[in-house]
């Protein structure tokens, strides 16, 4: 499993190829979203909806062998693309790695330019939800051991 900082660096490098072209960037984000594994309809529950997003975002997680795996879906293509970046960064990491992670890629790919204030809040809500899951799993693992 690659380190979170390395994955962020990869993302920054990929976006730099788009040369700041807004339309290409938006298309690329949507394309990333299309690559997420499909989410079962049964998993699209009220409970799995991330609170604080303007669009509907479902986020699921599971713990396997000490690592947390995420999947996500959204009713809007761009949001799905954005959340796919988080899935790529965090899925497969340990709870501690997730909790210690510092996300720096957003400003480096100029995310503030192509997502508005509303979506930025939504993005923060998704990150928070991911860390909440990690914390819950960490606690669970500690109780067991």
């Amino acid at each position: 499993m690659k380190a979170i900082t390395d994955i962020q660096e990869e993302i920054v490098n990929e976006f730099s190829l788009l040369d700041g072209d807004q339309e290409m960037t938006v298309l690329y984000i949507m394309e990333l979203g299309q690559k997420l594994p499909p989410m079962e309809e049964a998993e699209k529950t009220e409970q799995n909806i991330v609170k604080g997003c303007q669009s509907t975002v479902w986020l699921t997680s599971k713990l396997d062998n000490g690592r947390v795996y995420f999947n996500a879906d959204s009713n809007t293509a761009i949001t799905k693309g954005l959340v796919s970046l988080l899935v790529r960064i965090f899925s497969g990491q340990t709870p501690d790695q997730i909790l210690d992670a510092n996300l720096t890629f957003m400003s480096k790919i100029g995310m503030d330019r192509f997502i508005g204030t509303q979506r930025s809040n939504g993005f923060a809500a998704m990150t928070k939800q991911i860390k909440m899951y990690a914390l819950a799993y960490k606690t669970k693992m500690e109780v067991k051991s």
């Binding site: 807004q22 339309e23 938006v26 669009s55 809007t76 293509a77 761009i78």
Partner: peptide, 14 residues
């Protein structure tokens, strides 16, 4: 089949 937010964002990019 296309959410209005996505349409708005794509148009903004243009």
């Amino acid at each position: 089949g296309i959410h209005h937010f996505d349409i708005g964002q794509m148009l903004d990019a243009r």
